[in-house]
Amino acid sequence: MLSVQDLTVSLGPATAPVDVVAGVSFELAKGEILGLVGESGCGKSMTSLAVMGLLPQPGPRIRAGRVLLEGCDVTQLQPWQRVEAGHGRMAMIFQEPMTSLNPVRRIGDQIAEAVRVHDRVSGPPAMARARELLELVRMPDPAMQLSAYPHQLSGGQRQRIMIAIALACRPQVLIADEPTTALDVTIQVQVLGLLRELCNRLDMAMLFITHDMGVIAQLADRVSVMYAGRIVETAGVEALFGRPRHHYTRGLMDCMPSRNSGARRLPTIAGQPPAPGTVRAGCVFASRCAAVREPCRTAAPPRAEVSRGHEVLCTFPLDDGGPR
């Protein structure tokens, strides 16, 4: 369905590029939910914008790599060119629905606008489809809500509207960039449930980006962990949580408060992520890794498949699921 190969996104002049995304590859199958997890600045949002063709201009650019949607490289196409070429069936939702919605236009008009672009219909048929989409995202009173303004809706409802707009193109791939981070936990669980149900029902693949390991565990089929512009570990969700092999993944899990209830002190990962472009040699995690050895500082770690479908970017991966 979607295949991202060796994607590299760079900032700065072409003569001295700084890679904020450095050789990211992943595959997304039909109906599959891939979780992309990492801390702020690790390049996860930049990856999703590059895949969508939404990198801000001027600014970061795709320096290398390919994004194949059903076998066709869409890297060089603007979003409107993708729609015209018949490769427009990819959509994205963002963290803060209020900033993505137009505050002075009615909900129905905003959904119908997306319908017009993708279905080439307007007027009553577009509005009818908008209503259908609201039903699809389980909006209460869909007919009435068509004439509502964004400020009249709660945060969870606004996110449902964003999902409805995203579904207007009948996406094969939905990219969700921290869509529940701004929501309260009781509403988050509803929106996550809706997203998973939609993936099942519409056979839609989803790339779900988050910093929250709990959300990933609840939602994803497979998980890629990103650190300093690289995917450091990819595995099925059960394998990743049951037996993490990268030291960073393990550290991320260890420092979650909910895994340590009652502990006097939380385990931490010392220091902070390196600024892009500052690691010239060796492993990007070496400066923070508790198990760092001499080769880690000089040689780039190999990407190895430690078990079927479980890849890790580490010279000395964790070999058991127990504590370090």
């Binding site: 709660s154 669980v189 609840q218």
Partner: peptide
């Protein structure tokens, strides 16, 4: 109860999505 139940637990074997009802937030 609903707050505690809605915490996303970092354990893929304890999935709660679709299993709990939390209602709409108040105005």
């Amino acid at each position: 109860r609903s707050l505690v139940a809605a915490i996303p637990k970092p354990d893929p074997s304890k999935r709660i999505l679709g299993a709990i009802e939390t209602g709409e937030p108040p105005s």
